[in-house]
């Protein structure tokens, strides 16, 4: 009773915080938008002056600023929807470089989305249009390529390089970990930890060899994954890591086959 009261209070505080954050963000965005428009107007004016000063002005395409302001707002809203949908659904399995590095036609983007849906990606039907528009507009065949980031491997933030396979699970109760996983984690990561459309596979994945990263994600949450610190004790989080590390992928795959 007491603990649920505490949880409720915490939830209320969190909700208030989120609400306030959202309000401030909106306000900030509105201010930024105004500044942005002023800047656009200034640039347009400069361009016009520049064009007038030239003896033979080059033919210019119809200015995009001529579009209706409502259309701009609608597009901005749809882009927000698209970015959120991409973040919440696509970034479960890969990061945004997978799409931002490509330059494709609208038809190609459409078929890429179909391919990913076939491979278990989730995308609410209402978000599909905005996502297609966003990708086709921002990563079109004619969009200039962006210079790639350069990095030494040690500076790439990644779980992809296997780390220490033994640290971080000392004293784990593997059986208890399996039970806790089944109750708390399996609904998104699948009963055999081979992933679902809501959460990626964990069995045999390199993240299991980065105990610090694993514990941080479990404790704090990540994108759609809620923080588990109020749900799971530190011991349970460690037990689950021990259980995940004990999984045999072949056995897991054979039990998980539909």
């Amino acid at each position: 009773m007491k603990s649920s009261l505490i949880a409720l209070t915490l939830a209320a505080v969190a909700a208030t915080g989120l609400g306030l954050g959202y309000y401030l963000q909106q306000k900030q965005r509105a201010v930024a938008e105004l500044a942005d428009r002023a800047e656009q107007a200034r640039v347009a004016a400069e361009r016009e002056a520049d064009a007038r000063s030239r003896p033979a002005p080059a033919p210019e395409p119809a200015p995009a600023e001529g579009a209706d302001e409502d259309d701009d707002e609608e597009r901005e809203y749809r882009d927000l929807v698209a970015k959120r949908a991409l973040t919440e659904n696509c970034l479960i399995c890969h990061e945004e470089g997978m799409f931002s590095g490509q330059r494709l036609t609208a038809a190609q983007w459409k078929s890429e989305i179909d391919k990913m849906l076939g491979w278990g990606a989730m995308l609410p039907e209402s978000d599909r249009g905005p996502v297609e528009d966003y990708l086709a507009r921002n990563f079109a065949a004619e969009t200039p390529e962006v210079e790639l980031r350069r990095a030494a491997l040690a500076d790439v933030p990644t779980f992809e390089v296997p780390g220490d396979p033994s640290a971080g699970a000392d004293g784990a109760d593997v059986a208890a970990g399996g039970k806790a996983f089944n109750i708390v984690c399996a609904s998104c990561h699948g009963p055999a930890a081979l992933g679902t459309e809501l959460g990626p596979a964990l069995a045999a994945r390199a993240v299991l060899t980065h105990a610090d990263d694993y514990h941080k994600v479990v404790k704090d949450g990540r994108r759609k994954m809620p923080a588990m610190n109020l749900t799971l004790t530190a011991d349970q989080q460690r037990d689950i890591l021990g259980w995940l590390r004990s999984l045999d992928v072949d056995a897991a795959a054979s039990t998980a086959q539909p």
Binding site: H94, E95, G97, M98, G101, L148, R149, R150, A151, A152, L153, V156, P157, T158, F159, E160, V161
Partner: peptide
């Protein structure tokens, strides 16, 4: 500059300069 070109971080795809 011999640092790798980062195509994607997850999965990790790095191109050699």
């Amino acid at each position: 500059d011999l640092r790798m070109l980062v195509r994607t971080e997850r999965p990790l795809n790095l191109e050699s300069p």
